[in-house]
């Protein structure tokens, strides 16, 4: 039997959760013994090569591209994990959720005090994914099997979770590993 495969992605996130994943330090060598990375920014594989056991999702969905990627994660992964507060509740990007979309764009590209934008226009290339009306937590878009909160989740939390799931054990994190910050 081949090694289990893991996929990871960062949607509307800051990659901090991925940094925390790397923070497992030398245990990454153990991890590599246990799994192969499939689609992930860690190995820069862009498309799924097949089904994965575990998918780690950082970030919520702020645009259609995020939804598309999250959807393909749900389709390719047995177990889908939201890791980090952005995936779980939208996080910092979701601070725009109480502000109308047009106002956000105007502030970012036209009115903001530090904006330099001689065109005075909001970019609108056909390649730019459409923004969603607000930022959605991952579990409001697809079914999520486990949530690892934190900003970012501690490396130990991620490690414990992965080891448990890869060895088919129930994921039962100790009190100190569930934190929202």
């Amino acid at each position: 039997m081949g090694k289990a495969k893991i996929a990871t992605t960062s949607l509307a996130g800051c990659f901090g959760c991925h940094m925390s994943l790397l923070d497992i330090d030398e245990r990454i060598l153990e991890l590599i013994e246990l799994v192969d990375f499939d689609k992930s920014p860690i190995d820069d594989i862009k498309t799924f090569s097949g089904r994965c056991l575990v998918g780690l999702v950082e970030g919520g969905c702020c645009n259609e591209e995020n939804v598309e990627v999250l959807k393909s994660f749900r389709e390719h992964c047995e177990i889908l994990i939201s890791f980090g507060d952005c995936a779980i509740m939208g996080g910092i990007p979701a601070m725009r959720n109480t502000i109308p979309l047009q106002e956000c764009l105007d502030e970012a590209y036209i009115n903001g005090p530090t904006v330099y934008n001689p065109s005075g226009e909001v970019p609108n290339d056909p390649e730019i994914p459409l923004l969603l009306n607000r930022v959605y937590p991952a579990h409001e878009v697809v079914r999520i099997d486990y949530h690892l909160p934190g900003c970012p989740p501690p490396a130990d939390t991620i490690w414990e979770a992965l080891v448990a799931l890869l060895s088919n054990k129930p994921l039962d994190l100790p009190y100190e590993l569930i934190k929202y910050d």
């Binding site: 259609e64 939804v67 979309l101 764009l105 459409l130 969603l132 878009v141």
Partner: peptide
């Protein structure tokens, strides 16, 4: 794969109005 309760079309409506184009996906 998308949750039934996730209204992707509704979520894109505002952007369509702002950009004047339809979704890629």
């Amino acid at each position: 794969s998308l949750l039934a309760t996730f209204d992707i079309q509704g979520a894109l409506e505002e952007s369509r109005g702002i950009t004047g184009r339809d979704s890629l996906h």
